[in-house]
Design a protein around this nucleic acid. Structure first.
Lengths: 209, 209
DNA sequence: CCTCAACTAGACTCAAGAGTCCAACATAAC
DNA sequence: GTTATGTTGGACTCTTGAGTCTAGTTGAGG
């Protein structure tokens, strides 16, 4: 940020964070070795410790960086719902596909896997992603749905609940099908899943005539 | 099983498996120490190695034992759908509550957490639980739903898809609300979640008049 | 009572990983 | 050129945990 931080060599910080994520994602926190991260970042081990102090801080900052990325991508997907034309199913499907893509992103799976694994040891990280990512996204989606309800396109009493159910229908099937993020779901299958989810959602919340 | 296996002292095998699960669940596989497991089982470390050979085998057998338990409990829950009276919503809610209880069981969360964490290292375990637990349960639920569809209580084209969506509606909200299994969801909240899920499901698959 | 198998406590080996230290080196700013 | 700061590689300390070994104990079956 401030110019005097870039004295000496180039800033290796980002390289280290990238490598750290790659190794943490592949091996899990306890099995990830700092030497390996340093090697993968093309950096001396001492440099890692210069930047981050210790392994735990490195882990925390890695997760935080990923969360920011995830939040941005998810909000962008939800924002697509602003441009609903007259074809609500098509618009919902478009958003659904983008949300599913976010969810199926390898980085996203890795983040979720790390959180699952390390929640007992690092409860604050869960707080961070929950409050910093999941909740804002759910909020944004609920807001959009409320708007659509007000315009009479769907019949929704509780927008937060509707958002929760839409999300569940979209992402629930992904866990098993992707084998906990191990298997890559082909695009066509993702599309089918999304369309089914949207169909069920619309069928449940169709406006009463 | 065979009587000559019980020579010498009592069979400590079960004690070890219980302690192993408890420690694995609390600490995760890499952080779980065999000494700790032995201590918690009230057994010498050598005894653990006598029974299971090494830490990895102990882990595998622990997971396998838990999967059996999970399968039995889930199938029992689904079986309740056989006794549908004339009140379909009530019957579905009853089954839903039992399924949600299974899903929220601390052992169940621990199992899921371990699978998430260790899937890259032990892909075969995922296979085991997927093929041995998730699929049979989904099958059984789909069968039951097909039956109800045939009897005209609901309008379902694809029972497998309907089962997938019902499961998603029931369990999807649990992940965030329970903070990845960290927080215990009170019974009342579980009931509310289940009722909402069933309501949305029935609304989506209500029979066309 | 004897025997055999499993059990126990604890010392032990061996490997590996976190974090430190240091002497040599590079570079941007002055 | 000088200086301050960051980087490098590699040796180093220290801890910890998996798995082995041993000498002694216990209990059931014969």
């Amino acid at each position: 940020m401030s110019p005097q931080l870039n004295r000496g060599r180039i800033d290796k910080r980002k390289d280290i964070l990238d490598a750290a994520f790659s190794v943490f994602a592949r091996e899990g926190y306890p099995q990830a070795h700092v030497d390996q991260i340093a090697a993968e970042a093309g950096v001396a081990k001492a440099t890692v410790y210069n930047h981050f102090g210790d392994k735990e801080s490195l882990f925390r900052e890695t997760i935080a960086a990923l969360s920011e990325r995830a939040l941005a991508r998810n909000l962008a997907a939800v924002a697509l719902l602003a441009e609903t034309g007259d074809d609500l199913p098509a618009a919902l499907t478009k958003v659904g596909i983008h949300l599913v893509d976010c969810y199926c992103d390898p980085q996203s799976w890795a983040l979720r896997r790390l959180l699952y694994a390390e929640t007992p040891q690092f409860p604050d990280l869960l707080e961070l992603t929950q409050v910093g990512v999941a909740e804002p996204v759910a909020q944004a989606l609920a807001d959009r749905l409320a708007r659509l309800a007000l315009e009479g396109h769907i019949d929704i009493a509780d927008p937060a609940l509707a958002a929760e159910h839409l999300t569940a229908l979209l992402t629930g099937p992904l866990e098993a099908r992707s084998r906990f993020g191990t298997r890559r779901i082909p695009r066509l299958e993702r599309k089918t899943i999304t369309e089914s989810a949207v169909a069920t959602f619309l069928s449940a919340f169709a406006p009463r005539p």
